[in-house]
Design a protein around this nucleic acid. Sequence first.
DNA 1: CCGTTTCCTTGATCCCGATCAAGAGGAGGG
DNA 2: CCCTCCTCTTGATCGGGATCAAGGAAACGG
Lengths: 249, 249
Amino acid sequence: MSSMTAPRPLPIRCADCPIRYRAVCSPCDEGELQELERIKSYRTYEAGETIAWAGEKLSLVGSVVEGVAMLSSTLADGRRQMVGLLFPSDFLGRPGRESVSYDAVAATRVTFCMFQKREFERLITRTPRIERRLLEMTLDDLDAAREWMVLLGRKTAREKIATLFVIMARREATMHDQPAGDGLRFPLYISREAMADYLGLTIETVSRQISSLRREGVFTLEGNRTVQIHDLARLIEEAGDDADGGLAN
Amino acid sequence: MSSMTAPRPLPIRCADCPIRYRAVCSPCDEGELQELERIKSYRTYEAGETIAWAGEKLSLVGSVVEGVAMLSSTLADGRRQMVGLLFPSDFLGRPGRESVSYDAVAATRVTFCMFQKREFERLITRTPRIERRLLEMTLDDLDAAREWMVLLGRKTAREKIATLFVIMARREATMHDQPAGDGLRFPLYISREAMADYLGLTIETVSRQISSLRREGVFTLEGNRTVQIHDLARLIEEAGDDADGGLAN
DNA sequence: CCGTTTCCTTGATCCCGATCAAGAGGAGGG
DNA sequence: CCCTCCTCTTGATCGGGATCAAGGAAACGG
């Protein structure tokens, strides 16, 4: 598919915002890069700070440069479900849509590289390649959401925790261009409460399942939020996935 | 946003495939319509027939014209979770992707208006407006998936059933350009097992919750698969949604 | 028409994860 | 340092939905 459109293989990066070109406009030509450069800006939120409320009109779109943000929805009586976790290079905002659909909250201190939605939309209209890239990213998000639906609807508490840890481990390894394997250390970034909201559990159940896997030697914890994997194969097995499904590749 | 791109307001329809233009290429100009006309074809599947397996390379994309199809994923031990339900005008397939991610099965006899993926992609490349439309549709799918994540992760069995019925009722009313209200009759289309897979429940729980709501006079059943609503307000209340969330508008 | 199959309902019981409750551990500020 | 706040862990109990089991009802083919 990329063979259809890519004018050259990339990667292009910019010094102060290395993630941006991967996320928004890979590939871009020089003119498009300069235009993006002109309209970009940065914004940092502290941990716990609300970036946007569901239903609010948001005039910015952009990518996470550093840190982690959460997308979540709250029922009338306060039950909360996280519907997405945004890591560096992930895109926030919906070009062509009036308002955001979910609460966006900073999980850690998080920095965005942002664009005025209006200007970004104008650029998109002139640059089909960026629109193609947005479609790509949205399809990825859709796949991730559907994979998570399987977890929420059908997995046990233990499988949910194992799946989350496997995904976090893979992410961390990929980020540092390492193979994922035993001995890998990585931060969880989010609180037990956030994990519970992500996995459709309570914090007590999250805590118990983590303790259980830790006691069985699958991993150890350094402090509360850093994991060191000891038996990745076991963790993958505990994740209970489909034979050829998402985690196996 | 449509004000940015739409050359005219629409709707354009074609006699033998009225849905297609809404789904795939609204708006289109005459040349694009003729091109789509040239490469389209129809395909019908019987209820229960598999349209595509997860991981399979699928060279077709297209819209449902009539009937209902299901997208689902199965864990190693057979637990199944439905991740999407495709009604007329819904799009199946992923331009730019090699293979499908989920099993696609006909829930009823279902007819698609399909295009060879290759040719469709070629058309897209020349027609940014269709790509824009695909992005729109994918964003809608993403919203729906995330709304469903809230249901799967946080709603009770009773709330899940109520939500499903409200959505089905709204769909049916919209389809016939009626307001949704008490007295509305509509078919469920899918079996109890399919509902269970969609809602992350067992068939027994689905059956019990339906019986419970029926006994309380919220609706009646004609046969097993046709519902007549008697108290839509109550049903919406039982759905337990966020105050200003998806169902309320 | 009846026999078979498939789908659906209902009852009895069990168990996983929620809830209620208490306390331990860490971080930050005085 | 201690004190407070907050997060996390662990224990005891509860309950919603799963599981096991049986039978009813609709669909289908003869």
